[in-house]
Deep mutational scan, measured.
Amino acid sequence: MFKRLMMVALLVIAPLSAATAADQTNPYKLMDEAAQKTFDRLKNEQPQIRANPDYLRTIVDQELLPYVQVKYAGALVLGQYYKSATPAQREAYFAAFREYLKQAYGQALAMYHGQTYQIAPEQPLGDKTIVPIRVTIIDPNGRPPVRLDFQWRKNSQTGNWQAYDMIAEGVSMITTKQNEWGTLLRTKGIDGLTAQLKSISQQKITLEEKK
């Protein structure tokens, strides 16, 4: 169930391209415009997507990853294993993690069937560096609404905000991946996880038929 919630949630996290980005210092504006741009692209490019579902990787690479804190999220997933990894191991892992996100997020976007969304009203940021933004996803086919909290983090150097995690039903996506990959990290280390991520990233994206 959580895996499905995570995939549905990713439908609204794909941010804007650099040329049309919203105010990078306001995570609420980023979330709002990102959702609108993403849904528009999914709707307008269905012919290309249906002809070649792996085209979704391109959308992810162009529109999402430049505005997601990939390395920060990847380091959180590694936890204690990050500090013990060599620079070469980290570089290989982050490259594999990025390719994994292209496949995983692309597969999530393949679930698009006309969903709509509501974003919580903007709250004062103050001096906060981590801000959760509640998004409610509404399914046109009558499924119950899904309420999610996207975690946005302020870059201490640039002042810009980027998304790095999502919490559904009190469970963090980062925590879920830590639990899912924990045994592999304990037995085969970061190299074993890197190899698995490379394998997963090679899987073809498949479209979910409308139910």
Rank of each mutant, 00 (worst) to 15 (best):
G159Q: 11
L109W: 13
N155W: 02
K128W: 06
A51E: 12
V131G: 07
P144C: 02
S201A: 01
R153K: 00
A92M: 13
Y100F: 13
Y93V: 04
W161L: 03
M173N: 01
Y117L: 04
L65R: 05
L207D: 15
D127R: 12
E209D: 11
S172Q: 05
I138E: 08
K83G: 07
M166F: 02
S84G: 13
P124F: 11
S201D: 15
K198E: 06
Q115E: 01
A9M: 10
N160Q: 14
Y81M: 09
F2I: 12
Q46K: 06
Y117I: 08
A168R: 11
P132A: 00
L56G: 07
Q46C: 05
L42C: 11
P47G: 10
L101I: 15
L76S: 03
I190R: 12
S84M: 09
R147C: 01
V171L: 06
Q123E: 12
A104F: 05
W161M: 02
E208Q: 13
I138Q: 15
S172T: 11
Q46R: 06
V12I: 10
T176C: 00
Q46E: 05
Q118N: 11
T86Q: 11
K198P: 15
Q80W: 06
Q162I: 08
F150K: 05
L64F: 15
S201I: 15
Q202C: 10
M1D: 00
T20W: 15
K43C: 07
E63Q: 06
Y28L: 04
Q107I: 15
Q46T: 06
E99P: 14
A75I: 00
L64W: 06
W152F: 00
K37F: 11
F2H: 02
K3I: 07
M31A: 02
T86Y: 07
A96H: 12
P145M: 12
L125T: 12
L148I: 00
Q24E: 13
K211D: 08
Q203Y: 15
I119S: 15
I167S: 06
G74A: 05
A168Q: 07
E122D: 10
T194D: 14
G126D: 13
G114F: 04
L65M: 14
L78K: 00
A95Q: 09
P15Y: 05
R186H: 02
D127T: 11
P53Q: 12
I138P: 13
V146K: 08
G114N: 07
P27N: 03
R98V: 06
I167G: 04
L101G: 14
N160P: 09
T206D: 14
D127W: 07
A75G: 06
K102G: 14
L101V: 12
E180H: 04
L185H: 10
L125M: 10
E63M: 03
L56V: 10
A14N: 13
K154T: 11
D165R: 04
R143K: 03
N26S: 08
A73R: 00
K37I: 07
I137Q: 03
D40M: 10
A73E: 01
K177H: 14
Q103A: 11
I59G: 03
L197M: 08
R57A: 13
K71P: 06
A75R: 01
Y67W: 03
Q162T: 05
P66Q: 09
L11S: 01
A168P: 00
Q151H: 03
Q24Y: 08
R41Q: 06
K188C: 08
V60H: 05
S84Y: 13
T158G: 08
T129S: 09
P132C: 02
T187N: 06
E91R: 08
Y100R: 02
V131D: 02
L42R: 04
T187G: 11
S156E: 04
T58D: 07
R41K: 05
K102S: 14
N160L: 07
E91P: 04
T116P: 15
W152R: 03
D139S: 06
D23I: 12
A108W: 15
L42M: 13
G142L: 10
Q36P: 15
A163H: 14
Q24C: 12
Y164Q: 00
I59R: 02
E169M: 06
A88K: 10
A85G: 13
Q123R: 13
R186V: 01
Y82C: 05
L184A: 00
P132G: 08
E208H: 12
R134H: 01
Y112W: 04
A22E: 10
P140A: 00
G142R: 12
A120P: 14
A21P: 11
L5N: 02
Q118G: 13
M111K: 11
L16P: 08
T58R: 08
I13Y: 06
D127H: 05
Y164I: 02
V171D: 01
K83P: 04
P53M: 08
A168S: 00
M7P: 00
K37V: 10
E209M: 13
A34Q: 01
Q196A: 06
Q103L: 15
A120R: 11
K37G: 10
T20Y: 13
T129Q: 08
A95Y: 08
Q162C: 04
A51V: 09
Q103C: 12
A88R: 11
V70E: 12
I130Y: 07
E209H: 14
S172D: 03
T176K: 01
L78W: 03
A96E: 13
I167W: 14
P140H: 14
K102Y: 15
T206M: 12
T158R: 08
A14I: 11
T206V: 13
W161Q: 00
G182R: 14
P66A: 06
T25F: 08
Q151Y: 03
T175W: 11
P27K: 01
A14F: 14
Q103I: 15
E45M: 09
N44G: 12
Q196W: 07
L184P: 07
R153N: 02
K204Y: 09
S156A: 00
A34M: 15
D54V: 13
Q178I: 09
L11Q: 02
S172F: 05
L16Q: 06
Y28P: 02
P132E: 05
M166C: 01
T187A: 00
I59S: 07
K128D: 03
Q48K: 10
L56M: 15
Q48T: 11
Y55D: 13
I138V: 07
L125Q: 06
I59Q: 06
P140R: 15
D165G: 00
L16M: 14
E209F: 09
T175F: 07
E63W: 01
I130C: 00
Q48V: 09
L10H: 02
L101W: 15
F150M: 06
Y100Q: 15
V60W: 01
I138W: 09
I174W: 09
I130G: 03
Q178C: 02
I190N: 08
L197V: 07
A34D: 04
K198A: 02
A51S: 12
F2P: 01
L10E: 00
R90F: 03
I138H: 11
A108Y: 06
Q80P: 13
I133V: 01
I174N: 14
N52V: 07
K177C: 07
T25G: 10
I190K: 06
M31W: 04
D40P: 14
K210C: 10
T158F: 04
I190V: 03
A73K: 03
L207G: 15
D61Q: 14
E45L: 06
P53V: 08
G170L: 01
M111C: 02
G170E: 03
T136L: 15
E91Y: 07
G182Y: 09
N26D: 09
A195Q: 13
G189Y: 01
L109E: 15
L10T: 03
M6L: 08
R57I: 13
Q118W: 14
L42E: 05
T86A: 09
R143H: 04
I119A: 00
S172G: 00
V12T: 06
Q118E: 13
R186A: 00
Q103G: 15
A168T: 04
Y117N: 04
M7S: 02
K71D: 02
V60A: 12
Q151L: 05
T136H: 13
L185D: 01
V171A: 00
K29L: 12
L30R: 14
A85S: 12
P87E: 08
L5D: 01
G159C: 11
K71Y: 05
S201Y: 15
A104M: 08
I133E: 05
K210Y: 11
T176G: 00
D139Y: 15
E180C: 11
Q203L: 13
T38E: 04
A73G: 15
A75T: 01
G182D: 00
T38C: 07
I167H: 11
N141E: 07
P132Q: 05
D191V: 06
Q48S: 14
T20N: 11
L101K: 03
P15Q: 15
L42G: 06
P15E: 06
A18Q: 12
V135F: 00
K211N: 04
Y93M: 06
K177P: 14
L10W: 12
L65Q: 12
A88Y: 10
D191I: 06
L125C: 07
E122R: 12
R90K: 15
A108T: 11
S201L: 10
L148T: 03
F94W: 11
P87T: 12
N26W: 04
E122L: 10
N44M: 13
L185N: 09
M111E: 14
D191T: 08
I137E: 15
D127I: 12
E180G: 02
